[in-house]
Every structure is written in C-alpha cells, then in structure tokens.
Amino acid sequence: MTDDDWVGLSRRIARSVQTTIGWIFWDPGAVARTEALGLPGPLGYIAARGAPLAPAGPDAVIASFGSISPAAIRWAFDLVAEKGTTFEDVWAARDEAVGEGLAAHAPEIRAPLADTGPALWDVVDALPTVGRVLMAAHLRMPRPEDPVLSGWHAINCIREWRGDTHWALVAAAGLSGQEASVLHNAWLDYEDGWLPTSRGSTPDDIAAAWASLAARGLANDGRATEAGLALRQEIEDDTDRLTVLPWQLLGRAETVALAEALEPPCEALLRRVDVTAGPNYQPASRIRPPRP
C-alpha cells in the first residue's frame, strides 16, 4: 500500500473508532449510573474518561482534554471528593453501561470487538507513548475479562492515541483549546458558537478566542478566514497522516475487515447519539459535506 492508501484507511476507520467509544458519553444508562454517584450530566463523562489520569490531578486532565471546560473538569474532581465516590467507581459504572448499551443498541458490534480484541491489544502495547499522555495513562487500568468489553477498551486506547496526536498538532499550531474549538466549529460549518459552547466555553471565552484568532489573521469579524479554515484542514490531514501506525501494525486485511464489521453497527450507535444528544454531537463521526 502507498502512504496515501494508509492515510485513507486511517481516515475511514477513525469514524468507527470514534463512534464505538463516543456514543457512551450521552447514553442514558451511563448518565443514570454516574448521577447515582453524584456526578450530574456531562460530569460523569469527564470523570470516567479522565479516570486513568486522575491521580495526576485536574490540571493534567485539563491539559489532556484540550477543549473541554477547565471549570467543568475541576467541578468533576470536586464532586468525586465531596460525594465520597472514586474515579474507579465512575470508570466501573461507565463500563457497566457500555456492556448493557452495546447489547441493546448495536449487538452486531459485539462479535468483532471480542474477536479482534486480542490483536488490538497487541497493537496498543506496540504503540509509542511519547507525548501521548492520556492514552498512556489508560495502560495502567485493569483490562476487562469480558472479551467484548476488552475489545472496546483496546479501541478506546487507540482512540485516545489518535486524540493525543491531534492535540499535539493543535499545540504545535499555537492554538489554545478554545481557539481550536472555535476554528473547528467554523470548519464544520456549525451554527456560531455551537461546538465551544457544547464543551463548556462561556461567551467571554468564545469572544476572546475570536479576538486572538483575528490577531493572527485566522479570523475576521467573528468568522474564520480562508487561512483559518486551511489551518484547521491541515491539522485534520496531519492527524490522519500521523495515526496510520495502529492500522499498519494490525495489517491491511485485518483493518479493512474490522472497518467493514464496525461500520453498520456504528451507524446504529450514531443514530443513538442523534436521539440522546443531537445531530451535531460527535462531529468526528459525521461525514462532513464538502465546503461550497
């Protein structure tokens, strides 16, 4: 395969990787379980996803999450301490919801996750962790005995490895989390402010991001310039280019087979997100129409 072939395959399967994991963020079963632990709404997602890195404290999780509201992350830490629960409890509650939700909403995904899980863990163990702090933190967590959940966690590690790579590119471009979120929103052609607001940014945060982007010629009068959109596209393309390694380690035939197996149930999971959160959520899973 050529380099371009690998990049295309990485881009293709990234949608399913994101969807396999991301639907749980708004799943009512997960929300109910984490609310029972004292973490309302999206704070359960924050605590569950951040659990592997939680011993390093909120500042480390803020740095690794990129565009998620620092105030919300600090609030999640405060509530975990205040309610007498632990990040491990939240992690376990999320896992219960994953198993239940996959069986209910995408049962066809269970076999490929179970069957490919061992090979995916071999890939995870071979991936370089330098600069991929959130993914590396996941390696300390116990690997589930249940084969479906184990495969899900291996996919999650690969997802976080891609995410860490993406945020390294954002940082290299000199963008803050809020600036990246505002620029991403424009690149998606979402309504003004939707994406940063969904991640907890305030109107003042968004205004400050626009101002700093404008100072660099990346925005003008509250709109992304062509240079801003080109930078966001470059980050996306570089993310695809720099995240081919997991699939090269897995192998072309195995990756294509996994993509084909995951895509139909992932479409069902994405429809589930439409119901539980809304059609704008999980933008990395959405097929972005060409810009006019």
Rank of each mutant, 00 (worst) to 15 (best):
M1Q: 10
M1I: 10
D3W: 10
D5G: 12
D5Y: 09
G8C: 04
Q18G: 12
W23Q: 05
I24K: 01
I24S: 08
W26R: 10
P28R: 10
V31R: 15
R33W: 05
R33S: 07
G38W: 10
G38P: 04
P40G: 08
P40M: 11
Y45T: 14
I46G: 01
R49V: 11
G50W: 06
L53D: 02
A54T: 05
P55G: 08
I62P: 00
I62D: 02
A63E: 10
S64E: 12
G66M: 04
I68E: 07
S69P: 03
A71R: 12
A71Q: 13
A71W: 11
W75V: 15
K83I: 10
K83E: 11
D89E: 11
W91S: 12
V98Q: 02
E100D: 11
G101V: 05
A104R: 15
P107W: 06
I109V: 12
A111V: 13
P112D: 02
P112A: 00
L113R: 00
A114E: 02
A114H: 01
T116Q: 12
T116D: 12
P118I: 08
A119H: 09
D122V: 11
P128F: 11
P128E: 05
P128D: 12
T129W: 05
R132D: 03
L134F: 15
A136N: 12
L139K: 07
M141I: 13
P144K: 08
D146S: 09
P147H: 02
L149T: 06
W152V: 05
H153T: 14
H153D: 12
A154V: 03
A154M: 10
I155M: 09
W161N: 04
R162M: 04
G163N: 05
D164E: 10
D164C: 08
H166V: 06
L169S: 06
L169M: 10
A172Q: 13
G174L: 09
L175G: 03
L175A: 04
S176R: 05
Q178K: 14
Q178G: 13
E179I: 06
E179L: 03
A180W: 08
N185L: 01
A186G: 09
W187D: 04
L188C: 07
D189V: 14
D192C: 07
G193A: 02
W194P: 00
L195Q: 02
P196L: 01
R199A: 01
T202H: 00
A219Y: 00
G222Q: 05
R223W: 10
A224P: 03
A227S: 14
A230P: 02
L231I: 09
L231G: 01
R232S: 13
I235A: 00
D237L: 13
D240C: 06
L242P: 01
L242D: 10
W247M: 00
Q248N: 06
Q248C: 05
Q248H: 06
L250E: 02
G251V: 08
A253P: 06
A253K: 14
T255P: 00
E260K: 11
L262Y: 01
P265H: 08
L270N: 06
L270V: 13
V275K: 13
V275D: 11
T276F: 08
T276D: 13
A277L: 05
Y281K: 08
Q282C: 14
Q282M: 15
P283R: 04
I287K: 14
P290S: 13
R291K: 09
P292L: 04
